[in-house]
Amino acid sequence: MRVGTAKESYAADEGLFKTDTQKVWFGLLMAGLLLFPLNGSNYWMFLAVLVMINVISTTGLNILTGYTGQVSLGHAAFMAVGAYTVAFFDGRFDTPVLLNLVLAGAVAAGIGYLVGLPSLRIKGLYLAIATLAASVILGFVFLNWTPVTGGLRGLNVPTATIAGIELATPDRLYWLVMPICVVMVLAAKNLFRTRVGRAFIAIRDRDISAEIIGISLFKYKLMSFAISSFYAGVAGGLWAYLFRVVTPESFPALASIFFLAAVIVGGAGTIVGGIFGAVFMTLIPEFLKLSATALVPWFPDASIYLAPVRNIIFGLLIIGFLIFEPMGLAEMWRRTRRYFALWPFRT
């Protein structure tokens, strides 16, 4: 606990960022996001866009699992719903990009609401299996509702076009994805400054007394499912504009595990945790791939032999995190900040 933050008013204490240090970090992050495209590399721009899409989706799952305590193994299926919605509306009716993205979120939210219904009766592992089952059913729909989803071959997605500008490449899409990502993450942070977010946490921490202080489990559990799916839907819609094709294979069940791992590795129940988790889970495999490539001059077969090892290292890193930092990267970050705030004194 930092004591040196005497507040002039409650307004400051209730602010989005409570300390000047936080404001500075946020400013640096924003500057970084604005300057990042200067690197000029298509590869890095692609990765940046993918990372931010995953940040949106992870934040959504974090609201449901990290904050409300409802474990979902079907998150990727809601991304798929969003991706198909965008592909369908943009492809069929040529509707505006932003409208398509809102529709993607809304359709996913509606389905998420329905998938959340079992949470009123079952909990924990049983609920996780129910969400997995729901995602299998959605997969079946994607595969067989051919007139809408294109069946096995899926749908092609037109280039996102805003005000006549074609966002055909990652360096242009960046300017669509980045602001949406920032706004949605800040909105999630806002949510937990209010009664709605507190109600979610209350349900996670003890659902019996939540009810006794007047929180409707029915209303808020389903709301959490809907919000979480909305985030996934928007992320899936952006994903569709990035990859330009959606098929039943685009969001396998493993992707749901990917997002759950991102929430846990990053730090469940903190907004920065969702960001860290998504960045880590997206970039580490790329980083390991690059490392293998870097070894090629010395070991010409490195990339062949290291490919499987890469997955093992990635898995070990995740396990290592769970063992040594069960509170996630967000907790490491907190300690680092504390260390520098008190530097040169050790704690």
């Binding site: 507190r198 946490i201 209350a202 996670r204 921490d205 003890r206 007394s209 939540a210 006794i212 129940g269």
Partner: peptide, 8 residues
């Protein structure tokens, strides 16, 4: 049995 929200 105290029923507070422990994470908050």
């Amino acid at each position: 049995n105290i029923a507070l929200f422990r994470g908050m």
